[in-house]
Every structure is written in C-alpha cells, then in structure tokens.
Computed example of a mutant assay.
Amino acid sequence: MTKRSAPWPMYVPEGTKNVGTARVREDRTVGASYAQRELMRRTGNQPASQFDDIAAGYDPFADAPLMPPPAKKRPKYRNTKCEHNGIKFDSEKERSRWFHLIQLQAAGRIRDLRLQVPYVLTARKQRDDGSWERASKYVADFVYFDVDADKEVVEDVKSVATRKNRTYIQKRKQMLAVHNISVKEI
C-alpha cells in the first residue's frame, strides 16, 4: 500500500477526469445508478446529497422520536363517559336521568335517591377442590323510594343495544328471582 502524499480532504481541480488510475466523478453521481446519472445529465437537476447525512440534519446519536400515543378505542356501545360535580357517569343519558331524578326529589315525588347500588345475586362459595368461586353482583344505576307508588324502585339506564346484552338479561332475571325486584329500564 502506498502512502498518500496529498493532504486530506483531497482537492481535485474542476474538469479533472483521472487521478492516477481512478476516474473522477462529480459528487452528485456518486452512488447513483446509471439511469439516475442519465436523468441528472439530461435534466440538469442535482439531487440532495445522499452521503452528508449530518449536514442534512440526521443525528445518529439523537434520541429516537417519541411515538404519538395510540388513538383511544371507541366504546362498544358508543357511549360517552362524563362527570358532574365529581360523580362519574357511564353515559350522557345516565347523567341526564340523574338530573331529572334530582328534580323529582326536590319536588318531593321521590326520596332516598342513591347512585350505583350493588346487589349480591350469588354469594361467594367454596368449591370441592378448596378454591373459591367469586360472588355475582348486579350494580343498579339508581335506587330510590317512589312516594306516589309507595315502593322502592331500581332503575338502570340502557340503550336499545345494551338491553339485548346477554349478561345484563341474565342479571335482570336473577334480580327478580333472588330479590323479587323488577329492574326498571330507562
């Protein structure tokens, strides 16, 4: 191997075709295919440098850009969760019903209005192998005492689609069988 006598970076005067046995090409053609070089020669358009990445803004040591968070998945029944005075509601329809029940309570037509009341449908039981079967619960949206009818009312706000939910239907039937309570669907 021979020692290079020229300092680095080597300067080659414009128009030089050969340096020693090496053919000199223009910077814009280095790494370009024959078709790309022909297009550049015919059109006169020079592409951006492919080899000077740092000058073009690429930093190999920079932190990787943060990915945007994935888009939130829409709810199955297209409900919009909302909040009012620290109370969280599963849907805007449920919140609207809450406002209506508060007005009825203020007017004296209902009393003892409660929100998200749990009912135990089947108690926790131990299996033969020693493991435990969880208790089954139903959580009513609203429970209140209707003054005019003189009875307790259990209400659940449901859309047309959620009324057909098999789990809900089964729990509604168990409420009637276990607690003798008919769930009023709104």
Rank of each mutant, 00 (worst) to 15 (best):
E92W: 14
R42F: 11
N45T: 14
A55K: 10
G86H: 02
V147T: 02
V178P: 01
K184P: 00
A161H: 08
S182V: 08
R124N: 03
H100W: 12
K88S: 07
G57A: 04
D59S: 06
I110N: 00
T2V: 15
T122S: 05
R111I: 01
W98H: 10
D129V: 02
D52E: 09
T29S: 12
E94T: 02
E83I: 13
Q50D: 11
K158Q: 05
L39G: 08
K72D: 11
V12S: 08
R109A: 07
T29V: 11
A123P: 03
K171I: 01
L66T: 07
R74E: 05
D129E: 00
H84Q: 14
N18D: 10
P65W: 04
Q126N: 02
I110C: 04
V183M: 04
N45Q: 14
K158R: 08
A106F: 07
F89R: 02
C82K: 10
A22E: 05
N45E: 12
R127P: 04
Q46M: 13
A35I: 14
F145G: 02
N45W: 13
K137H: 06
E155V: 00
D27R: 10
S136C: 06
H100V: 07
D27V: 12
F145R: 02
W98M: 05
A71R: 15
F89C: 06
K72H: 11
